[in-house]
Each structure stands twice: as structure tokens, then as C-alpha cells.
Design a protein around this nucleic acid. Structure first.
Length: 519
RNA sequence: CGGAGUGUGGCUCAGUCUGGUAGAGCACCGCGUUCGGGACGCGGGGGUCGCAGGUUCGAAUCCUGCCACUCCGACCA
């Protein structure tokens, strides 16, 4: 079968899936690596996806009563020292600014020794500390609460190993920060953000996830509780696609975020923070991509319907173009998935067959090909990117022009749904929940033959009861899993009423937890 | 930062063992033939072979050092 990508995701040796991923990022025109180690250049098509994510999520954030603001990129070093666990968690991956001027010394441009900063500045890895500092000044009275702020920003974490979108030194994200009078209120806010992420991920990204609470060892540095949404990639690994933290009063104590209650007492605020990043784009690629390239859910596709006119340098070209222009105009006047349709007439001076395949690789949800015959017959030939092929052949279908225009919103909604359904079926089919002991779990994941390993054996996740051990006992569990390259993902929010014994300790189970390999 | 591997036009790679001064396919440009469709022919542009030293009459090729990237590990959104 002819493929659009040079690399197939499911055949060959174990390095195939990463190779396939990189091929998509490149061939779908999403991003490329930059001269700066670990940092990427997000190209227009990839950034267009990010803009769609921003716009649709920002609306949801505002619906939660959260306002946008902007805080500095640089954070004084001293701010981190205030919260011990927090600084420990990030110390090893901080970019530090120590000078404010360059000087040519011996013909070499270097930091001017006379321009050393009194106190080094950290390029934010996350903004709890500097936002908390502002909160401490903004909150005086219980009447100021709850305080709910979000910012869209870039952050820097000096990671050892980077992969485009999934883990880069600099990445784009949103971070929400809230302060509340009570634990209940802050926890409710934490869970509201988590639910927003779940709904966004499933309805906008068409990426099914499991929302739940992270075990103690996976908590955000300094948090009382961390929640996540976990998505299953096509190689069976888990991708943490969003996190929400209940920070208790540890950050407000460290930063003196206090309010006077209605009874006149000074009380510490309970705070929360939550974030999602450009990593979600990596998740979309690994959830929906196929051997022909990317498949974008219509809700985040920068262009939902792309029209490729079949031009051959003949007189009839003018008619085809006029026909296509009128079609784009009518499509863009329609509303799909709650917004005006984003249709594009691709007039680039390029062979139409090349244009078609470029849009296939980029994942445009609907690709329309219009030739003289369509123009003359008043019809529209198109292909759905979610169901591109019938066997090895590309599946093209035709509709009367007006019918196509009228059905376009429903078509896009259907593609959105079908991508979700496909991914949801895969997720559901690949969570084993019938294993009752660690030995069984180990056997399921661990005894992969060399052959399995080489064909990227798809194992998915295991969902099993556990006793929620803490401290040293939890560390032991984590170690045993680590030997199998496994991690605890989260304890899903939806839990049954009763539990079998813990697969790790044999003690009575108190909840079910997801186990799997992860990114 | 530990282990393994790879750096040759935009992309995928051959050439490296056995030194003689750079190739293929795709992409790009031109002309022509095709064309409901990832076509073909002819012609063409583009590379100081990751960087810096060394050996040699001569280095993509041998030696030394460095850098970057990929995969595995540790760390993480």
C-alpha cells in the first residue's frame, strides 16, 4: 500500500513509533527543532492548532469565572527559596539569568563581569511563586475571595531529554491559579479545572482521557493533592495531558497569602493551580495520526475544509476557480461546531495531486477536489481524512453542490465524533481490569518476549485495586513497577463500590489505580 | 549525567573497512508530453561531507579532541 509517510507506525522494530511520530511532526508541517537545544520552532500549521486550543479553552476558563492576567517571565531566585519542596522539585531544571550586559573581552562576546545581577533571576518553570507574591498583596479580606487568575505564557524547564511537543525546554501553556477561603472551596476549584480539562480533551481534541488523582509519589512539588487526565497513545503508553493541583495552605504560608475573615481572624488561603501545554498537540498526533499523516479533529483544525482546484492551464480553469471561490464563500458562511467554518481555497501554483497529499499529511478533515466536470455538473467531490482509504484506494465521494454546503456542518461534527469514537474504543479495549496480583501484572507487562519488544507490543494499561500505601511502603511499590518500566498513572475519579485485595500488598483495596508505561 | 548509535544538498540515505578531491531517490527550477490526478522524458540549480586540530603529495574516508541529534536509563507537563 502506498503511504504518505516514509515510516509506518505499527510495523518494523521497536523504534518505529518514535520515528513515525517525528515523521508526522515534520511532514504535517507542525514544527521543527531549532538552533536552540531542546527548543522548537512551531510552524504556522502547528501554531494554528495551538491557537485553536487557546481560543476554545480560553472560553471555558472564562466560563469558570477566571480572569486572564500576565506575570513576569523572570522570577527572583529568592522566591523559590520560600517553599522547600517546591524548589527541590524544580531546582535541577532551572534556567538562570546572572548578567544584564555583554562585553567584548579579547574579541569574544561574553557576559560582562561588572554587570552581574545582585540576585539571579530564574526563567519561570511555573509561576506559583510570583503569582503567589501578587496574591499576597491582592488578598486582604474574605471579600476578595475567591481570586481566580489564568495566564497564557511560555515557561522553561531545562530537561535532559526533549521531544518535539512532548517535552521541550521551552513550552507554551496556560496556568490557572486560584486562592480560596476554605479547603472545600479550593478543592472544588481544583476538581472543576480537572473536569474542564476532561471535557475539553474529549470534546475538542477528540482525545478520550481518564481523569483521576495522582498517587503521592507523583504529586506536584509542594502540593497536597494532584489530579491529572491521562490519555492513551497508539503505542499503549500513557500521556499526562493536563494536571490540577490542590496546594493546601503550604504556598500561602510560604508567601503570606492571608485574609481577614468575617469574624476578624487572619486566615491563610487555600490555593490551587492547574495547567495544560503544547504537549496536548503531541497527544493529538499520537492519538489520531495514521500512516498517511496527521488527522486533525475539526474543532482544532486551522482549516477544516480545503479545496484543491484541478487546474490544467486551460481556458476552463477560470470556471473551476470561480466555482471554487463561490463554494468557499458559502462554506465560510456556515456554522459548524459552534463557529464559522474555516474553509480554504488552495490556489498555490503547484500540482494538484501534490497539494492533495500535502493536506492529507497535515490532516485537514475534509479535502475537496474540484475539476471542470464538478463545475459543469454542479457537484462537489471530496474525501474525509478520518476515513481516507477504502482498502488501499483513496475513497472519494461526490454530492450536489448545495447539498454539500448544507451538510458541511454535520459532516465536520461527524468527523469530530468518529475520531473520538475510534480513540475511545481503543482506550476502553486496552485497559485490563481482571488481574488480581502483582505477579499477574508483572507477567502481563513484564514478560514481553524480545519479539514483542521489537514490534512495539501494545499492552495498554492495567486497572487494579490497591490499598493506597504511603511513604516507604509506596516507594517499594514504585520500585517494583519501575523494574518493569511501569508507573502509577492515577486513581480514576469513577470508582466502583467495593474492591478486591491490593495487588501490591494483599491488604484490603480502597480504590482502583491505573498502571502503565508512560511518556 | 550513564549506556548505545548516528552526523554527507530541504528529506531519506549510499560512499568510510581498502585515502585520489562527492553520488542516488524524493523535493526544487526550466522545457516538453501527460493529467479526474501521489505520471513521464530531457535539461538544470543546490553540499568547504557536524566542528577544530593532526597524519599525508592528497582526507567524507585514517588519528585526537569537541559539538549536536536519536534511542535506552535517571528527571519531568
Amino acid at each position: 500500500m502506498q503511504r504518505a509517510l516514509s515510516v509506518s507506525r505499527m510495523t518494523g522494530n521497536k523504534s518505529t513509533f518514535p520515528d513515525w511520530y517525528q515523521a508526522i511532526v515534520r511532514e504535517a508541517d507542525m514544527a521543527e527543532s531549532s538552533p536552540v537545544r531542546g527548543s522548537m520552532i512551531i510552524k504556522p500549521w502547528g501554531y494554528g492548532v495551538w491557537e485553536r486550543i487557546q481560543q476554545t479553552m480560553d472560553r471555558r476558563i472564562k466560563e469558570m469565572g477566571v480572569d486572564n492576567a500576565y506575570f513576569p517571565l523572570f522570577i527572583p531566585l529568592g522566591f523559590f527559596a520560600k517553599e522547600a519542596e517546591h524548589v527541590d522539585g524544580f531546582a535541577k531544571e532551572m534556567a538562570v539569568v546572572t548578567h544584564h550586559r555583554l562585553k567584548s573581552i579579547d574579541g569574544k562576546l561574553q557576559p560582562d563581569p561588572d554587570a552581574k545581577l545582585e540576585e539571579p533571576l530564574i526563567v519561570r518553570p511555573t509561576s506559583e511563586t510570583i503569582i503567589g507574591d501578587a496574591f499576597s498583596r491582592w488578598v486582604k479580606s474574605y471579600r476578595d475571595l475567591p481570586l481566580k487568575i489564568n495566564q497564557w505564557a511560555n515557561v522553561v524547564r531545562w530537561e535532559m531529554r526533549t521531544r518535539l511537543f512532548l517535552r521541550t525546554s521551552e513550552f507554551l501553556w496556560q496556568e490557572g491559579h486560584t486562592a480560596h477561603a476554605t479547603r472545600e472551596d479550593a478543592l472544588a476549584s481544583t476538581l472543576l479545572a480537572l473536569e474542564m480539562y476532561r471535557e475539553f480533551s474529549e470534546n475538542v481534541l477528540a482525545m478520550p482521557v481518564v481523569a483521576g488523582e495522582k498517587p503521592e509519589n507523583e504529586r506536584f512539588p509542594g502540593a497536597d493533592a494532584t489530579y491529572s487526565i491521562e490519555a492513551m497513545m497508539q503505542d499503549g503508553k500513557a500521556l499526562q495531558a493536563g494536571t490540577s493541583h490542590y496546594l493546601g495552605t503550604s504556598f500561602s504560608r510560604a508567601q503570606n497569602i492571608r485574609y481577614q475573615s468575617d469574624s476578624g481572624e487572619m486566615e491563610f488561603c487555600h490555593t490551587s493551580s492547574w495547567g495544560t501545554s503544547t504537549r496536548m498537540i503531541g497527544g493529538v498526533i499520537m492519538t489520531h495520526g495514521d500512516d498517511d499523516g496527521l488527522r486533525l479533529p475539526p474543532a482544532i483544525a486551522p482549516r477544516q475544509i480545503v479545496i484543491v482546484p484541478m487546474l490544467r492551464g486551460k481556458e476552463e480553469d477560470a470556471q473551476v476557480l470561480a466555482y471554487a471561490e463561490a463554494l468557499v464563500k458559502d462554506l465560510n458562511a456556515q456554522v459548524a461546531l459552534g463557529e464559522p467554518i474555516r474553509a480554504l481555497l488552495d490556489t498555490k501554483d503547484q500540482k494538484s495531486s501534490d497539494k492533495r497529499w500535502n493536506w492529507v499529511r497535515r490532516g485537514a478533515p475534509v479535502i475537496v477536489e474540484l475539476g471542470p466536470r464538478d463545475a459543469a455538473g454542479g457537484q462537489v467531490s471530496f474525501m474525509r481524512r478520518d476515513r481516507l482509504r477504502d482498502g488501499d484506494k483513496v475513497k472519494s465521494q461526490a454530492l450536489a453542490r448545495d447539498e454539500f454546503v448544507a451538510q458541511a456542518p454535520a459532516l465536520l461534527a461527524e468527523i469530530q465524533q468518529s475520531l473520538f469514537d475510534e480513540a475511545k474504543a481503543r482506550l476502553d479495549a486496552n485497559i485490563r481490569s481482571d488481574l488480581t496480583s502483582f505477579e499477574q501484572v508483572a507477567e502481563y507487562f513484564g514478560q514481553l518476549s524480545d519479539e514483542d519488544e521489537e514490534t512495539s507490543a501494545f499492552k495498554g494499561w492495567v486497572r487494579a485495586p490497591w490499598s493506597r500505601p504511603t511513604g516507604a511502603e509506596l516507594d517499594k511499590v514504585v520500585e517494583r513497577l519501575k523494574a518493569l518500566k511501569l508507573t502509577l498513572r492515577n486513581a480514576p475519579s469513577q470508582q466502583p463500590d467495593s474492591f478486591g485485595p491490593c495487588v501490591f500488598t494483599g491488604d484490603p483495596g480502597v480504590e482502583e489505580i491505573l498502571i502503565g508505561r508512560s511518556y
